[in-house]
Design a protein around this nucleic acid. Structure first.
Lengths: 211, 211
DNA sequence: TCCCGGTCGTTCGGCCGCGAACGGTATCCC
DNA sequence: GGGATACCGTTCGCGGCCGAACGACCGGGA
């Protein structure tokens, strides 16, 4: 309640849209509260991604995905492509394409795994290293800007609530139809979503003292 | 703080990832709080979208975007394509493609605007109407599930915080480089993002008693 | 040794997504 | 009225994105 931010018509505008929706659906027992919470996630995500691509990434012609891959390689160093895919939240097939793009621009390098012929290792090139080190401070500055309508406590709260949603949805992987069922299906390629704070940890890094 | 939900290792896992990031970047003055808040938005959005497409939309082979378009037409009725584009948060070019897909499946109908030869009107076909009415309750049920780790107050708070972020980023449209500058650039196609609660209102609907 | 199931990265087809460019249309202003 | 201007939806090129299919490769077992 502290930061209302911007003298915009935000609340009234949104109220109008919601009123239209209720006028159309109000006689049916839908969960408008969850609808607002969930739908706004996608809305904010698209807004932020477009902003970053236009304001920060455009100077190097990078997409959000390409940047994310470079970020992962920057933080955790050389990785197997499968791990990068999981960490960036895409499928292996998608990652192949992104890597092809990055490789064509000489930003990353692929190399064969020494012990396993199936695996492929990826790492930043010196050029890629320079690009991410130039880009990330600007990227982070825009993150600060995007969160600047929030108090510190609100930013923490936002991250926390989003993690709860992600964890909840992740917990339902591999199910079929009904909501009540317990999860059992193990067969599904590991999938993560988005940059940073994925739940995969890098290999050979601190074991984090178990549970 | 009330709902911790799932006996998962969520917090410790995320803590480990964040610790790795700080180990790599901690000596530099980055804004880790904003980083966590913003990056988790994208992560949650992807997770939710994939979940919806797999659990709800797959039975009709619809994408999130196609569903969103049908939703808009369902709630607000026949619309000009430009308005649908703004409401769904895509460009006009993208919408043309989505409409082509929907039209090929006989879910929407295009018609010429009576008074303006440039405009095109879109509406749900009877078949499309039936599909969205079957699909939306299931969709909303999954929204409820996705938000089920949150209390009612937390869900409201999440929506509120996300709206603040969206509004903040939207306010920066048309700028170039420096953060301090005031916005001036008017030339930019109206852009919204995501389903529901966009700030565009339908034409000819209640005027909402102005400001 | 030779299968054989499992795993890895790539390829493929289809769709979404963007900005830029294009043709058709309306509107403003003289 | 007639031309400049602005607007609308479509098209285009390129890249991201997914699931499925594929070929290469690993490991274990007889």
């Amino acid at each position: 309640m502290t930061t209302r931010a911007l003298g915009s018509a935000e609340e009234t505008e949104l109220g109008r849209a919601e009123r239209d929706i209720r006028a159309r659906l109000g006689d049916r027992p839908f969960d408008f509260r969850s609808m607002a919470a969930i739908s706004n996630i996608y809305r904010a995500a698209t807004t932020v991604r477009n902003h970053m691509e236009q304001q920060v990434l455009a100077v190097h012609g990078l997409s959000w995905s390409a940047f994310t891959v470079m970020w992962v390689l920057w933080i955790w160093g050389e990785q197997e492509t499968g791990r990068v895919a999981a960490e960036t939240g895409t499928t292996k097939g998608t990652l192949t394409g992104v890597l092809k793009t990055l490789e064509s621009r000489r930003l990353v390098l692929r190399s064969a795994h020494p012990d396993d012929g199936r695996r492929v290792l990826v790492r930043l090139s010196p050029r890629g290293q320079a690009v991410i080190e130039e880009l990330f401070p600007r990227f982070n500055a825009e993150e600060t800007f995007a969160a600047s309508a929030l108090t510190a406590a609100e930013a923490d709260q936002l991250a926390h609530l989003l993690r709860l949603v992600s964890a909840r949805v992740d917990s339902a992987r591999g199910e079929a139809a009904p909501r009540g069922a317990q999860r059992d299906g193990p067969t599904l390629t590991a999938r993560r979503s988005g940059r940073t704070f994925g739940s995969q940890r890098p290999p050979g890094r601190g074991t984090g003292r178990g549970s």
